[in-house]
Design a protein around this nucleic acid. Structure first.
Lengths: 342, 342
DNA sequence: CGGCTTTAGTAATCCGAATTAGCAGCCGCA
DNA sequence: TGCGGCTGCTAATTCGGATTACTAAAGCCG
């Protein structure tokens, strides 16, 4: 068999076989029926027959040269898409994205060519390939403001999964309303009788962190205690809480809540009798626990879905509101009960 | 700001700014220095300066029109890439693929535009977009032979992750050596004194199933019992095993092994004292268990890595062996001990 | 029958980059 | 002074398909 026996068919080939021009093939394929492109059924059928017989498929790339849309949805993740330390925070987002992309007939392009350095990827590295995609979704706990600013400046269509503020311009996003959710559970705790409550976690940096602390303060007042967790063993945090006679801890990171719970169990401190523990979201680090924490979950799958929808709206110019906050899913759980003596 | 102030730059624009021709820009970009393309340093620098100042990026698709490679690696999964019933059998494969793709500077294109119907995707649906990618990796427990045949016929570069036989031509693959692994653990059980051993599972259909049964029979003989699991409650399978006075069960699907173990525990049957249970691979269905089963694991991550490497070799024409079987990782585990009375 | 419209189709051009062919200008050498 | 060879660069073409502009032929009307 000669080398190029299987060389790819082109419209020119189809045209030759059907005894029409390449233009006609294109018109038939695109099912055009304007006044300026009338193809009688007979000719159309002849062309379609050849197409069917040969199994011809239009080259999607050539197509994109003239059309504006490519049906490729870029997905940029600031960490690995498929992390081996499978805390798998991203998985539900991606599941939602995949679901909606499939429905829209889009393919997903993961920008794995951007190398991970220091645990992060950067969009704008030498020879970035963003433009292959029609638009792009951004995933990551923290996204450098300068990258967002550049995307906006370059007028590149994108949507951030997670709220972003700081970029010298409005950032299109689909986020979760951490603030309201945190405030709601804090108020719920107060209604149960908790008077000494504390926020445990970073409370700054990423918008999601700051939002939670803000929501907490909205319920608990500006002077309510805030305990950092960074680089502190959970036992130390626990001591701190007990020293201050805290009755309910609002833990930003679920993984920390799990660790705190484990530390308490080790010391014979009963959760929730001696200390209520509220988880403000989902684990972004690997952490296994079946425990049904009180608190809330991030609507990750829904966020993925809505992000795709928003990007589609942006691309087709029909987007009205470009910033979307989805409510979190409150869970009653078993780690929040009235404090002793209440 | 006018609408198209940020319109995409082209080589023509760069050429105009640097006062050279588009050809020269292209030559500089591709760093050509043939006899037929001599660009003195001065001109080269001038062009590069403009490119740097404008942040110009070549359109990868236009590039693909003329070059053959696009640095895009297609990934076709026959089920969802991000399954919500996260048994997550695929995750390690994808992690390996991502890892190697990143190292090669490739992006990953997930063909989510192929709709999932009846739990399956099909490659060759109306308007397939395979050709956007340079080549493609195939993932899935069962891949329709006709699709493989067509890929081969069309001379499309691909590699299957998992061994495939039936396609009227050699299928390039990176598989796991289920046969040898199964045979090895079966022989190990026999060495421990097991005389009445049985294969539990499908044993046919996918190559991986058939391979395991073959490996089992190589050790246990052609008449060794084979119990199906399909649509049977695990308790029934357990009864069957006990009725036949089996001392060690070789379970194809880890999820079934877990279910069997649970059924045994419920009846007060001790594993491994009363019955050894060997898991022949990893769970392809959602199934949680911390239990350290005796048996083996599929080298999924390594398979992903090697598949990318093989595809790269195929694309660059340096592939020698196109079919690769990787050894499975045997695990001693705690569910295989000598039978009572041995 | 001549002019006008509609029909059916095609030639030419474009998208953005890569590549091929080739053109001026200059140098060196016989 | 004439010719070959080198240098530095560009015009033209290509990839595969979409689109625009246009033409040839047929149909219609008065």
């Amino acid at each position: 068999m000669p080398d190029k026996a299987t060389a790819r068919l082109t419209q020119r080939d189809i045209a030759r076989l059907a005894k029409v021009s390449q233009t006609t093939v294109s018109l038939v394929l695109n099912n055009r029926s304007d006044a300026s492109a009338r193809i009688p059924a007979e000719t159309r059928d002849r062309v379609l027959k050849v197409i069917r017989e040969t199994g011809y498929q239009a080259d999607p790339l050539a197509r994109r040269m003239t059309k504006q849309r490519n049906q490729i949805l870029g997905v940029f993740t600031y960490e690995s898409v498929f992390p081996s330390a499978s805390g798998d925070f991203y998985h539900p987002f991606l599941a939602g994205i995949e679901d909606r992309a499939e429905r829209l007939g889009w393919d997903l392009l993961l920008f794995t060519s951007a190398p991970v350095t220091d645990g992060h990827r950067r969009i704008f590295h030498e020879n970035n390939r963003l433009r292959i995609a029609d638009g792009c979704l951004l995933l990551g706990r923290e996204i450098p403001a300068d990258e967002l600013a550049r995307l906006i400046a370059e007028d590149y269509p994108f949507v951030s999964v997670g709220r972003r503020d700081d970029a010298g311009g409005p950032v299109p996003y689909v986020g979760a309303d951490y603030g309201t959710a945190t405030r709601t559970v804090a108020e719920r705790a107060q209604a149960l009788g908790h008077r000494r409550i504390a926020f445990v976690g970073l409370g700054e940096g990423a918008e999601s962190s700051a939002d939670r602390l803000r929501g907490f303060r909205a319920a608990a007042g500006p002077r309510a205690p805030h305990l950092p967790t960074l680089d502190r063993p959970p036992g130390e945090v626990l001591d701190d809480l007990l020293d201050r006679r805290i009755t309910a801890a609002f833990v930003e990171e679920r993984a920390d809540a799990i660790a705190l719970y484990a530390a308490a169990a080790e010391r014979g401190i009963d959760v929730p009798r001696d200390l209520s523990v509220v988880a403000l979201g989902d684990a972004t680090r690997a952490a296994a626990s079946d425990l049904d924490f009180s608190g809330f979950h991030v609507p990750r799958r829904a966020m993925g879905v809505r992000a795709v929808e928003l990007l589609e709206a942006v691309l087709s110019g029909t987007a009205t509101e470009q910033q979307l906050l989805l409510p979190c899913e409150l869970t009653d759980g078993i780690t929040l009960t009235p404090p002793e003596g209440a």
